Simulated scan of single mutants.
Amino acid sequence: MNRFDRFLAIDWSGAMGERQRGIQIAYLDIEAGTGPVLMRLPDAKNWGRVVIKNLLMKLARADRRTLVGLDFCFSVPWPEEGPLPEGEAPLDRVEELWDLVENICSGEAHYYAGPAIRSMESAFAPYILCDRYRGDEFRFDRFRETESQLSPKPASIYHCMGAKQIGPGSFAGMRMFHALRAVNDHRIAIWPFDPIEDANVVLCEMYPSLFYQMAGLKRAYDHETIQNTLAYFHSGSPPRMSIQDEADAVISVAALRALAADPTLFSDPRRVAAAQREGWIFGLAPS
Protein backbone atom coordinates (compact mmCIF):
# COMPACT_ATOMS: atom_id res chain seq x y z
CA MET A 1 0.00 0.00 0.00
CA ASN A 2 1.25 3.45 -0.84
CA ARG A 3 2.37 5.35 2.23
CA PHE A 4 1.49 8.79 0.84
CA ASP A 5 -1.88 10.40 0.26
CA ARG A 6 -0.73 13.07 -2.17
CA PHE A 7 2.25 14.13 -4.24
CA LEU A 8 3.75 17.44 -5.30
CA ALA A 9 6.49 17.99 -7.86
CA ILE A 10 8.10 21.42 -7.75
CA ASP A 11 10.14 22.56 -10.73
CA TRP A 12 12.45 25.03 -9.01
CA SER A 13 14.22 28.28 -9.88
CA GLY A 14 17.18 30.20 -8.53
CA ALA A 15 16.31 33.47 -10.28
CA MET A 16 16.36 36.76 -8.41
CA GLY A 17 13.13 38.28 -7.19
CA GLU A 18 10.07 37.54 -5.10
CA ARG A 19 8.33 35.41 -7.75
CA GLN A 20 9.74 33.17 -10.47
CA ARG A 21 7.96 32.05 -13.64
CA GLY A 22 10.23 29.01 -13.69
CA ILE A 23 8.68 27.59 -10.50
CA GLN A 24 5.87 25.26 -11.48
CA ILE A 25 4.01 22.81 -9.24
CA ALA A 26 2.10 19.70 -10.26
CA TYR A 27 -0.17 17.86 -7.85
CA LEU A 28 -1.66 14.37 -7.60
CA ASP A 29 -4.11 13.15 -4.99
CA ILE A 30 -4.56 9.43 -4.36
CA GLU A 31 -8.24 9.79 -3.52
CA ALA A 32 -9.07 11.97 -6.51
CA GLY A 33 -7.95 9.30 -8.97
CA THR A 34 -7.28 11.86 -11.72
CA GLY A 35 -4.22 12.83 -13.70
CA PRO A 36 -1.71 15.49 -12.67
CA VAL A 37 -2.99 18.97 -11.94
CA LEU A 38 -0.94 22.16 -12.22
CA MET A 39 -1.32 24.19 -9.02
CA ARG A 40 -1.99 27.90 -9.41
CA LEU A 41 -2.09 30.64 -6.82
CA PRO A 42 -5.46 32.35 -6.26
CA ASP A 43 -3.99 35.74 -7.18
CA ALA A 44 -2.73 34.30 -10.51
CA LYS A 45 0.81 35.37 -9.67
CA ASN A 46 3.88 33.20 -10.10
CA TRP A 47 5.12 31.05 -7.26
CA GLY A 48 8.02 32.26 -5.12
CA ARG A 49 10.45 30.43 -2.86
CA VAL A 50 9.12 31.95 0.37
CA VAL A 51 5.58 31.06 -0.72
CA ILE A 52 6.77 27.47 -1.30
CA LYS A 53 8.28 27.31 2.18
CA ASN A 54 5.00 28.50 3.70
CA LEU A 55 3.09 25.93 1.63
CA LEU A 56 5.30 23.12 2.95
CA MET A 57 4.71 24.26 6.52
CA LYS A 58 0.95 24.30 5.89
CA LEU A 59 1.05 20.78 4.47
CA ALA A 60 2.95 19.62 7.55
CA ARG A 61 0.02 20.66 9.73
CA ALA A 62 -2.48 18.62 7.71
CA ASP A 63 -3.58 15.10 8.57
CA ARG A 64 -2.47 13.63 5.23
CA ARG A 65 1.01 12.55 4.16
CA THR A 66 2.63 14.29 1.22
CA LEU A 67 5.70 13.39 -0.82
CA VAL A 68 7.25 16.50 -2.36
CA GLY A 69 9.86 16.36 -5.11
CA LEU A 70 12.15 19.36 -5.56
CA ASP A 71 14.26 19.90 -8.65
CA PHE A 72 17.58 21.02 -7.15
CA CYS A 73 20.67 19.52 -5.51
CA PHE A 74 20.19 19.14 -1.77
CA SER A 75 23.94 19.22 -1.14
CA VAL A 76 27.34 19.46 -2.85
CA PRO A 77 30.04 16.89 -3.67
CA TRP A 78 31.50 15.76 -0.35
CA PRO A 79 34.80 13.87 -0.65
CA GLU A 80 36.64 12.53 2.37
CA GLU A 81 38.53 15.77 2.88
CA GLY A 82 35.26 17.69 3.04
CA PRO A 83 33.14 19.80 0.69
CA LEU A 84 35.15 23.03 0.86
CA PRO A 85 38.55 24.09 -0.48
CA GLU A 86 41.59 23.81 1.74
CA GLY A 87 41.76 26.57 4.31
CA GLU A 88 38.02 26.81 4.88
CA ALA A 89 36.43 25.67 8.12
CA PRO A 90 35.60 21.94 7.95
CA LEU A 91 31.98 20.80 7.70
CA ASP A 92 30.71 17.54 9.18
CA ARG A 93 26.96 17.58 8.55
CA VAL A 94 24.74 18.73 5.71
CA GLU A 95 23.00 21.14 8.09
CA GLU A 96 26.33 22.92 8.51
CA LEU A 97 26.49 23.32 4.74
CA TRP A 98 23.02 24.87 4.68
CA ASP A 99 24.00 27.17 7.55
CA LEU A 100 27.09 28.28 5.62
CA VAL A 101 25.08 29.05 2.48
CA GLU A 102 22.66 31.09 4.58
CA ASN A 103 25.51 33.03 6.21
CA ILE A 104 26.99 33.86 2.81
CA CYS A 105 23.65 34.96 1.35
CA SER A 106 21.85 36.35 4.40
CA GLY A 107 21.60 39.87 2.97
CA GLU A 108 19.55 38.67 0.00
CA ALA A 109 15.76 38.48 0.12
CA HIS A 110 13.54 35.63 -1.08
CA TYR A 111 16.26 33.00 -0.54
CA TYR A 112 18.21 34.29 -3.51
CA ALA A 113 21.70 32.76 -3.42
CA GLY A 114 23.69 34.90 -5.83
CA PRO A 115 26.52 35.68 -3.37
CA ALA A 116 27.31 31.95 -2.97
CA ILE A 117 28.03 31.77 -6.69
CA ARG A 118 29.06 35.17 -8.02
CA SER A 119 31.18 36.52 -5.21
CA MET A 120 34.88 35.72 -5.24
CA GLU A 121 34.71 35.95 -1.44
CA SER A 122 32.38 32.95 -1.28
CA ALA A 123 33.76 29.80 0.33
CA PHE A 124 32.72 27.96 -2.85
CA ALA A 125 34.41 30.39 -5.28
CA PRO A 126 37.47 28.18 -6.05
CA TYR A 127 35.14 25.45 -7.31
CA ILE A 128 32.80 27.60 -9.40
CA LEU A 129 32.57 28.57 -13.05
CA CYS A 130 30.24 31.53 -13.51
CA ASP A 131 29.83 34.60 -15.67
CA ARG A 132 32.26 36.60 -13.50
CA TYR A 133 35.17 34.23 -12.97
CA ARG A 134 36.47 30.67 -13.10
CA GLY A 135 37.69 29.28 -9.81
CA ASP A 136 41.21 27.88 -9.69
CA GLU A 137 39.88 24.48 -8.63
CA PHE A 138 36.87 24.28 -10.93
CA ARG A 139 36.40 20.94 -12.70
CA PHE A 140 33.60 19.86 -15.00
CA ASP A 141 33.60 16.40 -13.39
CA ARG A 142 33.00 17.42 -9.77
CA PHE A 143 29.90 15.31 -9.04
CA ARG A 144 28.09 13.81 -6.09
CA GLU A 145 27.86 10.01 -5.88
CA THR A 146 24.21 10.03 -6.97
CA GLU A 147 25.05 12.10 -10.07
CA SER A 148 27.96 9.82 -10.96
CA GLN A 149 25.43 7.00 -11.42
CA LEU A 150 23.40 8.93 -14.01
CA SER A 151 24.02 8.57 -17.73
CA PRO A 152 24.32 11.04 -19.27
CA LYS A 153 25.52 13.00 -16.29
CA PRO A 154 23.97 16.37 -15.48
CA ALA A 155 25.96 19.57 -15.11
CA SER A 156 27.84 19.89 -11.84
CA ILE A 157 26.31 22.16 -9.21
CA TYR A 158 29.42 24.30 -9.59
CA HIS A 159 28.92 24.83 -13.34
CA CYS A 160 26.97 28.08 -13.02
CA MET A 161 26.84 29.26 -16.62
CA GLY A 162 24.45 28.58 -19.47
CA ALA A 163 20.89 27.35 -19.76
CA LYS A 164 21.43 24.08 -17.87
CA GLN A 165 23.02 25.50 -14.75
CA ILE A 166 21.60 24.20 -11.47
CA GLY A 167 23.85 25.96 -8.98
CA PRO A 168 21.73 29.10 -8.39
CA GLY A 169 18.58 27.08 -7.73
CA SER A 170 20.36 24.54 -5.56
CA PHE A 171 21.99 27.07 -3.26
CA ALA A 172 18.66 28.94 -3.05
CA GLY A 173 17.01 25.66 -2.08
CA MET A 174 19.59 25.14 0.65
CA ARG A 175 18.62 28.52 2.06
CA MET A 176 15.02 27.36 2.20
CA PHE A 177 16.12 24.17 3.98
CA HIS A 178 17.99 26.31 6.51
CA ALA A 179 14.76 28.21 7.15
CA LEU A 180 12.77 24.99 7.52
CA ARG A 181 15.31 23.60 9.97
CA ALA A 182 15.01 26.81 12.01
CA VAL A 183 11.28 26.16 12.41
CA ASN A 184 12.22 22.78 13.96
CA ASP A 185 9.05 21.02 12.82
CA HIS A 186 9.57 17.26 13.11
CA ARG A 187 6.62 16.75 10.76
CA ILE A 188 8.85 17.83 7.83
CA ALA A 189 11.56 15.34 6.81
CA ILE A 190 14.28 16.01 4.25
CA TRP A 191 15.19 12.67 2.67
CA PRO A 192 17.60 10.89 2.84
CA PHE A 193 19.02 12.85 5.77
CA ASP A 194 16.01 12.37 8.05
CA PRO A 195 13.89 9.34 8.97
CA ILE A 196 10.58 9.64 7.14
CA GLU A 197 8.29 7.24 8.98
CA ASP A 198 6.58 9.82 11.22
CA ALA A 199 6.73 12.84 8.90
CA ASN A 200 3.65 14.41 7.34
CA VAL A 201 5.76 15.97 4.59
CA VAL A 202 8.76 14.24 3.02
CA LEU A 203 10.98 16.31 0.74
CA CYS A 204 13.02 14.41 -1.84
CA GLU A 205 15.38 15.48 -4.59
CA MET A 206 14.11 14.80 -8.08
CA TYR A 207 15.73 14.93 -11.52
CA PRO A 208 13.02 15.16 -14.21
CA SER A 209 15.31 13.93 -17.00
CA LEU A 210 15.65 10.62 -15.14
CA PHE A 211 11.89 10.06 -15.32
CA TYR A 212 11.82 10.59 -19.09
CA GLN A 213 14.74 8.15 -19.38
CA MET A 214 12.85 5.53 -17.39
CA ALA A 215 10.17 5.70 -20.07
CA GLY A 216 12.82 5.27 -22.77
CA LEU A 217 12.50 8.86 -23.94
CA LYS A 218 14.47 12.09 -23.98
CA ARG A 219 13.26 15.10 -22.05
CA ALA A 220 11.19 17.18 -24.45
CA TYR A 221 8.10 19.34 -24.64
CA ASP A 222 5.81 17.75 -27.19
CA HIS A 223 2.49 15.96 -26.93
CA GLU A 224 3.76 12.48 -27.84
CA THR A 225 6.65 12.54 -25.37
CA ILE A 226 4.46 13.77 -22.53
CA GLN A 227 1.66 11.29 -23.24
CA ASN A 228 4.01 8.31 -23.55
CA THR A 229 5.93 9.20 -20.41
CA LEU A 230 2.73 9.62 -18.40
CA ALA A 231 1.47 6.30 -19.75
CA TYR A 232 4.68 4.63 -18.56
CA PHE A 233 3.93 5.82 -15.04
CA HIS A 234 0.25 4.77 -15.32
CA SER A 235 -0.99 8.32 -15.06
CA GLY A 236 -3.97 10.06 -16.63
CA SER A 237 -4.02 12.75 -19.27
CA PRO A 238 -1.91 15.87 -18.76
CA PRO A 239 -3.37 19.30 -18.07
CA ARG A 240 -3.00 22.10 -20.58
CA MET A 241 0.61 23.30 -20.58
CA SER A 242 2.65 25.94 -22.37
CA ILE A 243 6.28 25.59 -21.20
CA GLN A 244 8.84 22.86 -20.47
CA ASP A 245 8.89 23.65 -16.77
CA GLU A 246 5.21 22.74 -16.53
CA ALA A 247 5.79 19.50 -18.41
CA ASP A 248 8.67 18.58 -16.10
CA ALA A 249 6.50 19.11 -13.03
CA VAL A 250 3.65 17.03 -14.52
CA ILE A 251 5.92 14.14 -15.53
CA SER A 252 7.71 14.25 -12.18
CA VAL A 253 4.59 14.09 -10.03
CA ALA A 254 3.35 11.07 -11.98
CA ALA A 255 6.72 9.40 -11.47
CA LEU A 256 6.75 10.20 -7.76
CA ARG A 257 3.38 8.53 -7.27
CA ALA A 258 4.41 5.43 -9.21
CA LEU A 259 7.86 5.05 -7.66
CA ALA A 260 6.84 5.76 -4.07
CA ALA A 261 5.16 2.37 -3.91
CA ASP A 262 8.63 0.76 -3.90
CA PRO A 263 10.00 1.13 -0.34
CA THR A 264 13.51 0.10 -1.42
CA LEU A 265 13.88 3.42 -3.26
CA PHE A 266 13.67 5.11 0.14
CA SER A 267 15.71 2.63 2.16
CA ASP A 268 18.53 1.49 -0.15
CA PRO A 269 20.10 4.95 -0.78
CA ARG A 270 20.30 5.52 2.98
CA ARG A 271 22.83 2.67 3.10
CA VAL A 272 25.15 4.61 0.78
CA ALA A 273 27.59 6.44 3.04
CA ALA A 274 27.87 9.46 0.72
CA ALA A 275 24.09 9.95 0.68
CA GLN A 276 24.05 11.07 4.31
CA ARG A 277 26.00 14.18 3.35
CA GLU A 278 25.46 14.57 -0.39
CA GLY A 279 21.81 13.57 -0.66
CA TRP A 280 20.33 11.27 -3.30
CA ILE A 281 18.08 11.59 -6.36
CA PHE A 282 14.82 9.81 -5.65
CA GLY A 283 14.05 6.93 -8.02
CA LEU A 284 17.71 6.17 -8.71
CA ALA A 285 18.61 2.77 -7.29
CA PRO A 286 22.22 2.60 -6.01
CA SER A 287 24.44 0.40 -8.14
Results as ranks from 00 to 15, higher is better:
Glu121Ile: 02
Ser122Glu: 15
Ser122Asn: 14
Phe124Ser: 01
Tyr127Ser: 02
Tyr127Pro: 00
Tyr127Cys: 06
Ile128Asn: 02
Ile128Val: 14
Ile128Phe: 06
Leu129Cys: 04
Leu129His: 07
Asp131Val: 04
Asp131Cys: 03
Tyr133Trp: 12
Tyr133Thr: 01
Arg134Phe: 05
Arg134Pro: 01
Asp136Asn: 11
Asp136Cys: 10
Glu137Pro: 05
Glu137Cys: 09
Glu137Arg: 14
Glu137Ser: 12
Arg139Ile: 05
Phe140His: 13
Phe140Lys: 12
Asp141Phe: 10
Asp141Ser: 13
Arg142Val: 00
Arg144Tyr: 07
Arg144Glu: 01
Thr146Tyr: 12
Glu147Ser: 08
Glu147Gln: 14
Gln149Ser: 15
Leu150Arg: 07
Ser151Gln: 13
Pro154Gln: 12
Pro154Cys: 13
Ala155Asp: 15
Tyr158Glu: 02
His159Cys: 06
His159Thr: 03
Cys160Val: 03
Met161Ser: 13
Gly162Trp: 14
Gly162Asn: 12
Ala163Glu: 11
Ala163Leu: 08
Gln165Met: 15
Gly167Thr: 03
Gly167Pro: 02
Pro168Ser: 07
Pro168Asp: 09
Pro168Tyr: 12
Gly169Asn: 03
Gly169Gln: 15
Ser170Gly: 05
Phe171Tyr: 03
Phe171Thr: 00
Phe171Met: 03
Phe171Asp: 02
Phe171Glu: 00
Ala172Thr: 02
Gly173Val: 05
Gly173Gln: 04
Met176Arg: 03
Phe177Asp: 00
His178Ile: 00
His178Met: 03
His178Gly: 01
His178Ala: 09
Leu180Thr: 07
Arg181Met: 09
Arg181Leu: 10
